Amino acid sequence: MVSLPEELEAREAAARRRVEELRADTAELALRLEAAQEVLSRLEITRETVTKVLAELSAAQADSEADVPVEPAQKPHPHGAGVVMVPPGREGLAATVLPDVYRDIMEVLADAPGPLQAKQIVPRIGLAATAGKIEGTRAKLKRLVERGWLTEDAPGRFTLVRRRTLGIDPPDLQ
């Protein structure tokens, strides 16, 4: 039969081993956390730098586009990976010059009986109604407002500026 002091010593030794294992795990996790934080920091800095550079390039591109008319059949080419060019909307310029997702947004708004919010547009263009997709679409809507394709009559409610001159005709006007 095992005595009580021997049993306590055995349990104490097992607990001591478990504490040492957890300390080793904690040290390893601390190293992994530090490495992951370093990667995150570098990615944040890179994203901020790229965003700044692309914004400067877009501003320069917009200035040069104001001087050179864009033909309706001509699609602008992006100047960087993942950059979508949205030319300024003007009389006679068809929505066909817009990238696909922007054209989809324009078509949804053309079919709508009135102003729509981003959260109403997202499912209609085939995206999941998640916060990220709604915010991304809201940014695109704001860009279309800035470039003169849409108006925001009330905060967060978007409509087309001109249906016929932008090359988007609702089904009942075709």
Rank of each mutant, 00 (worst) to 15 (best):
E6W: 06
L8M: 09
A10R: 13
A10I: 08
R11V: 00
R17Q: 15
V19T: 11
V19W: 10
L22C: 08
D25P: 05
A27Q: 14
L31W: 05
A36Y: 00
E38N: 07
L40R: 13
T49L: 11
V50T: 14
T51Q: 15
T51I: 06
K52H: 14
A55R: 12
A59H: 04
A60H: 08
A62N: 12
E65D: 15
E65Q: 14
V68S: 01
E71S: 12
P72H: 09
Q74T: 03
P76W: 01
P78S: 12
P78C: 03
G80E: 08
G80Y: 09
A81L: 06
V84D: 00
P88E: 13
P88C: 09
P88Y: 05
E91R: 15
A94F: 10
T96V: 08
T96P: 00
V97R: 15
L98M: 12
P99G: 05
P99W: 00
Y102V: 00
D104Y: 09
D111Y: 12
A112T: 01
A112V: 02
A112R: 00
K119Q: 14
I121G: 02
I125G: 02
A128E: 05
T130Y: 03
G132N: 08
G132T: 04
R143T: 14
R143V: 06
R143W: 01
W149R: 00
D153N: 05
D153G: 06
P155A: 11
V161Q: 05
R162F: 04
T165R: 11
L166T: 14
I168V: 15
I168M: 02
D169W: 13
D169H: 13
P170C: 10
P171F: 07
D172V: 14
